[in-house]
Simulated assay, not measured.
Amino acid sequence: MSGVQRREEILVAARTVFAERGYSASTDEVARAAGVSQPYVVRLFGTKRELFLEAYTVASAQIIAALTAVPAGPDAALRMGDAYIGLLADRDLLRMVMHGFIAGADEEVGRVARHTLGEAFRLFQERSGQDEQAARVFVAQGMLINVLLAVDAPAHVGEDAGLDALVQCVQDDIAERATA
């Protein structure tokens, strides 16, 4: 396996480990998940912070790429929503993004997080032609969906009436989008 392939493999393992354990995960845990030694991970990425930052940057770029791929037009708003919802099937991606917001106190991680939110907002306006209010709702709805999935809310329906109603509203919005 080439060094580039091994690096990619470690980043995949890092996404999974950081998604599960957050920034508290160690480079040793990432190394075990990737089937390599911890010194090898450190040699390739430096510190745990740099490994986290790169894994987070890759995850954020995946979101931006999905939104960027939607061409401008009258159905762009719907298609951008669908593109984002499609990304959420990767539970590690959404949880990695959430941990990045938590770790955003780190200036570089925070910069990536802010850029991702800003780009989602800007791309929605640019592609859909809709106003700032619609773009704000798009970003807010995406974050709400992300949070609900990160806490596995759909699997816990019946535990809390308020959460049940919120999950139902979001599911209704998604179903409405699917039939539009």
Rank of each mutant, 00 (worst) to 15 (best):
A66W: 02
V4S: 14
G142V: 01
G118S: 09
Q62Y: 01
Q130K: 14
Y23W: 14
R6V: 15
A13M: 05
E50F: 00
A14S: 06
D106H: 13
A134P: 06
L163K: 04
P154A: 03
A61T: 13
I10M: 07
R32I: 10
F18H: 06
D131Y: 11
F45D: 05
G158M: 00
R111D: 09
S37F: 08
G104C: 08
G46D: 02
A120Q: 11
L166G: 00
A76S: 07
L67K: 01
M80Q: 15
R127P: 06
V151L: 09
H115C: 04
D90W: 05
I85A: 13
F18Y: 15
R15A: 10
R49Y: 12
A89Q: 12
A59L: 08
R136F: 13
F101S: 13
F18T: 06
V42W: 02
G158F: 01
R122E: 07
A113V: 15
A153R: 03
A34K: 10
E159V: 03
P71F: 08
V4N: 09
A155D: 09
M96T: 13
V17D: 08
G81T: 07
E50Y: 00
M143K: 06
Y40V: 07
E119G: 00
A13P: 03
A66E: 04
S26A: 14
R111A: 15
R15S: 09
V70D: 05
F18W: 08
V97Q: 05
T116S: 04
D82Q: 14
D28I: 11
Y23Q: 12
A120F: 01
E176C: 11
L148R: 03
R6G: 04
L166M: 04
A161R: 13
M96V: 12
M98Q: 09
L87W: 05
R136M: 13
D164L: 04
A161L: 09
A120D: 00
M1D: 08
Y84K: 02
I63F: 09
V170L: 02
V4W: 06
A76R: 03
L78A: 15
A31Q: 04
T116G: 01
R111S: 08
